[in-house]
Amino acid sequence: MMYAVLCYNNEEMVCGWSKEQDAAVMADLSRVHDKWEAAGKLKPAIRLLPTSAATTLHKQKDLVIDGPYAETKEALLGFYIIDVENLEEGLSFARELGKANPGGAYELRPIQLYLPGSPTDGVYSQGVMQDHAPAGSR
């Protein structure tokens, strides 16, 4: 079973960490990451930029608003990771999606740190094919 683990915390406080505090937390986290990644169970891990860097597209009115999606009635139902030239291109992608699936909103939040994690099954079996390595050796 695959899960998305969504991380919540007090943003002002996390942004207020000193470089040293931040590095210490990241070092502690990476020990946990390494263990689960080695077991092949940790997939991409992402640290998002602060909500102040976010832009939200409200689909029905095609309204672009600075800041995160702030309504509380809707639930987070999914997300995409995209690699585009700039915010405008990201918004074009979101608008296309919105035409296919109107209603609700897309929040575009830049990614600060992207850790690919252990390969997914598809990539893993491809790797086995190329490497001719015995299964379970990775």
Binding site: L49, S52, A53, T55, D66, L87, E88, P110, Q112, L113
Partner: peptide
């Protein structure tokens, strides 16, 4: 890089 990413993202937003 992390500071640069945030700076660039903010400029993109502001340009709109």
């Amino acid at each position: 890089g992390m500071l640069i990413q945030e700076g660039l993202a903010l400029i993109d937003k502001a340009l709109r």
